[in-house]
Design a protein around this nucleic acid. Structure first.
Lengths: 301, 301
DNA sequence: CAACGTCATAGGGAAACCCTATGAAAGGAG
DNA sequence: CTCCTTTCATAGGGTTTCCCTATGACGTTG
């Protein structure tokens, strides 16, 4: 039994023909025929019932298929792991981080990682959570931090930290008591993450609540960065929302008032990776460091 | 990347030397060296740091190892599955069953299976649960039924049915109220499963409770079969324990009195199989039938 | 009935896997 | 420090696997 034989078998079973399997593997149809016949001869049992334009797995073929698939996938993952590691030296490990990562003690993630791994180049991609999630799902990057909820199909999600989302206003009367979704919908909203809009997880949570209340959120102003939104709020043009970590940082103007929602709203920061994927050593190390730093931040509060 | 290369790599990593790996694979040491060098050449990365009498995995080797192990194990399981299927016709499917299987409507398991699979020979091995568990773990049999708790290292356990364990006595005054472990320890115990003794799961549960109470269980008489124990109890020589299914069967003499424990005690009947192993079609079918029959029994109560 | 699509086989070449023999290098023992 | 032992690497040769093109057999489709 060889890997080539298993690959040929799996592809023939999946595509329904030796000819298609050959095309998939980039080899001649005769090679597929030979590979599978050799496997059948070795175990003295047919794997397919052949018919003109018809290929049906036998019971033996059915029994072998999951194992063959697992073996070939594992070998492919192994090859990928080797290529990833090879890329490590002189290469780049990419990791998706939150746009507001700085507010969670993550601004020196790059430095701390570099200090302990001077031979590894790293590239932290600051993106919106939905974008990080889809990039990880697509395999473009190996892992990253996101705010939940995100579409987690094919992703393994590890929640790390919860942070309250608060209402921010320059008008103290509007921060006198916890804000209902109705009040929120009626306010003059200034929202950030203009590019991602309503795919942003924090926005999604707000939009979902509004919808349940039969309302629709329509921001008056949309900007890209939270700092820009805060600047506008400070001038009394409108109100926004922000994470407690941002509220408690120096980025938040002193004269702004914040208040929680009547029904508390939280961002849950989570680590995502593709389900079943093995992280390369560098990314595993980086993810571990990011996690520790987040939990450090949580411990200090 | 080929299966032979992955096998050589895994064995070298596991044994710590090319020479040992060669012995394990039954090939020359030079072949191992060549296999691994070819793999390293293909990915342009060393997998081992070689030293005289020392072999250390590189970071790349560490990265590859789990995938290589998975690939080789999957291929072996595939080969096993093929051999199992080939052995099915005119072969024997073995399955471990409880010693007291008859009390759970399993006595006609063989017949029912044969009726639906006349071309498959089956061999049901009646053994103690601990024995079934270790035989499955060792791969001697593919699956079986056991009573919990058992040592489940490397086993996948699926609980199916719970049955109360009751105290049985000929003396009605001793069955007047639920029995404490202290009372139990003080009674004249007649226990079955003499051969397996305290590795029997039911006994283990009792022994654990006694130990927690600072007591030790010392049976006055030990026999092999529950029927033998019941016969002695009927004569007033001592008391025993038995599953409710046995108590409610015709095997239990009419004049015996049974009562539950003050702290209810149960046998949990479970299906065990080796973790990660794929059952051959015949064994899967047999296990499924056994499970349905057990649940039928449970439904009737 | 002819054309088409698919699988099986033949024969040949390249690569992988196997061997024995032997040398290089490092560790251990005395 | 020297000698011996153990382990890995390489060479050269033989066998098996994997690849190819060419071509025939068989069943389906129109």
């Amino acid at each position: 039994m060889t890997l080539k034989q298993l690959r040929a078998f799996v592809l023939a079973a999946r595509t329904g023909s030796f000819t298609s399997a050959a095309a998939s593997m980039g080899i001649a149809q005769a090679s597929i025929s030979e590979l599978i016949r050799k496997l059948e001869d070795e175990y003295a049992t047919p794997l397919f019932t052949r018919g003109a334009r018809r290929l049906v797995l036998t019971a033996a073929g059915e029994a072998l298929l999951p194992h063959a698939e697992q073996a070939t996938v594992a070998a492919d993952d192994g090859a990928h792991a080797l290529r990833s590691v090879r890329g490590l030296h002189g290469g780049v490990a990419t990791f998706g981080v939150l746009r507001n990562a700085g507010y969670y003690l993550l601004s020196d993630l790059a430095q701390r990682f570099h200090d302990s791994h001077p031979d590894v180049r790293i590239r932290l991609i600051g993106r919106n959570s939905a974008d990080v999630a889809s990039a990880v799902a697509a395999g473009t990057i190996e892992a990253g931090l996101v705010v939940l909820p995100i579409d987690d199909a094919d992703l393994e999600v590890t929640p790390l930290l919860r942070d309250e989302v608060r209402y921010a206003t320059a008008d103290p009367s509007r921060a006198a008591e916890p804000v209902s979704i109705e009040d929120f919908a009626r306010s003059r909203l200034i929202l950030y993450d203009a590019h991602y809009g309503w795919s942003d997880p924090t926005r999604r949570q707000l939009a979902d609540r509004a919808q349940l209340a039969g309302l629709k959120l329509e921001p008056w102003i949309e900007v890209e960065h939270v700092e820009g939104a805060l600047s506008l709020v400070q001038r009394g043009i409108g109100d926004t929302v922000l994470a407690r970590a941002v509220a408690e940082s120096s980025a938040c103007p002193q004269n702004l008032h914040t208040i929680g929602f009547r029904e508390p709203l939280h961002d849950t920061i989570a680590l995502v990776r593709r389900r079943g994927a093995t992280l390369s050593p560098a990314t595993r190390e980086l993810a571990g460091l990011a996690r520790r730093m987040l939990l450090e931040h949580s411990g200090n509060d």
